[in-house]
Design a protein around this nucleic acid. Structure first.
Lengths: 229, 229
DNA sequence: GCGGGCGCTAAACATACGTTCAGCTCCGGC
DNA sequence: GCCGGAGCTGAACGTATGTTTAGCGCCCGC
């Protein structure tokens, strides 16, 4: 079992691994173009020459960082699809997709930040990661749907995307959540609480009295005109 | 032309405005550090010297681009809060926040990309924009809540964030949606359809029948009339 | 007419950056 | 003992990039 999950942490003893680790962190924090090889060398406490000695070039370094990330992600992906393929109920679905994320939560401060960058910078492999992720979510929904678990009036086209929004929202916006809440949305208890709020929203919505018999508490304000331009 | 909305489009006749416009586009597409002043000069069909002549430095240029964006955003923000302050029902809320976005949808290919980039790069003003956005959403929810419009078991801490996720999801992930659907999620009909899916999810959830996590007033599926046009 | 400011250009300049290279230390095998 | 390779260093190199500067043409007020 311990073998199923690829090791996340590189040995910081060797200079090569230190460079890889530091580069991943800096790329995630500042973006590829904003980080200089001298920054990396300084942070990893090695000479600039060593980076090119091991990785050929700055681009080569990025390739290796990407490869390392994808190696980890691939393991999680396979794990996810394997479990996901057996899911047919909404409850189960919400369980495994969250578990799939939570399983590696301890390694996330580094990995999540890097994935966030990759997604937002639209790296070529970032697009591939997203595509796979979409496939996972979509096929899971399809199975739930086939089992009658999706309400009939729900838009099948948008449902996977809306669910993805909810799932990756914390990933993409955590820097700002941190500023508002004072701590990361990935913190254990916050994360768990978020999962419950998320599950509840998918199951029942959030507004009360879904029945149209709402006691319109305020006198009728002028309703906004439909978006027109 | 309505005077209430600050002009979005600069006059591309003057070199200064061309630079501003091109810079906004390139910064949004590639990120500040990846764009060189020579790129901008070439794309705006001016000399490199003109950029520093008008803006002093590349950083000065960014400041002006930011200022122009914020000018536009501020108008939309005030417009949003003014209307938003009068909203107390969930229906209205969902209406105005979407209208607030839809109103400027034609200017979005440029503005959205720039905002997306600002959020990605965690610029200081990007954080400020997010904070204000959060305040808008949160206070709107609070009013709805005070009017009894929020279901009691809903997590008040996470609700604003989950709603924000749904709202900005398309903004942040549109490049990938484009690859999957073949066109932008901001396209008129897709956007409208997304809004309905979004409203429906908030009102009723998406799963059918299934047992809600909490004893809900009605474990059986609740039916809603289709959103009136 | 003309002086001066404004928009603008193109070349020159200084520096930051990615890359290269000669050479150092350490260590295992012969 | 010493050879050879691996890990590593720091200075040097070439180029890309942001900035500065000298100067041109146009237009407006006097």
């Amino acid at each position: 079992m311990s073998n199923a999950v690829v090791k996340f942490r590189l040995e910081p003893k060797s200079g090569r691994d230190r460079i890889l680790l530091v580069a991943m962190r800096l790329f995630g924090e500042q973006g590829f173009d904003s980080v200089t090889v001298r920054d990396i060398a300084a942070a990893a406490d090695v000479s600039v020459g060593l980076i090119n000695h091991h990785f050929g070039s700055k681009d080569g370094l990025r390739d290796q960082v990407d490869a390392h990330f994808l190696e980890v992600f691939e393991a999680a992906y396979l794990e996810g699809t394997r479990v996901g393929a057996e899911v047919t109920s909404a409850e189960e679905y919400s369980q495994w997709i969250e578990a799939w994320i939570s399983r590696h939560v301890d390694d996330w401060p580094l990995l999540a930040q890097y994935l966030r960058r990759a997604l937002l910078e639209e790296s070529d492999w970032g697009a591939e990661v997203f595509r796979r992720y979409y496939d996972i979510v979509r096929s899971a929904i399809d199975r739930v749907d086939a089992a009658g678990g999706v309400a009939p009036e729900v838009d099948r086209l948008w449902l996977p995307f809306l669910i993805i929004y909810l799932q990756v929202g914390t990933l993409l916006l955590d820097p700002y959540i941190k500023r508002i809440l004072g701590r990361s949305g990935f913190d254990r208890d916050l994360w768990r609480r978020r999962h419950e709020a998320y599950s509840h929203m998918l199951a029942s919505g959030v507004w009360s009295g879904g029945a149209p018999a709402r006691p319109s508490p305020r006198p009728t304000r002028r309703r906004r005109p439909p978006p027109e331009k």
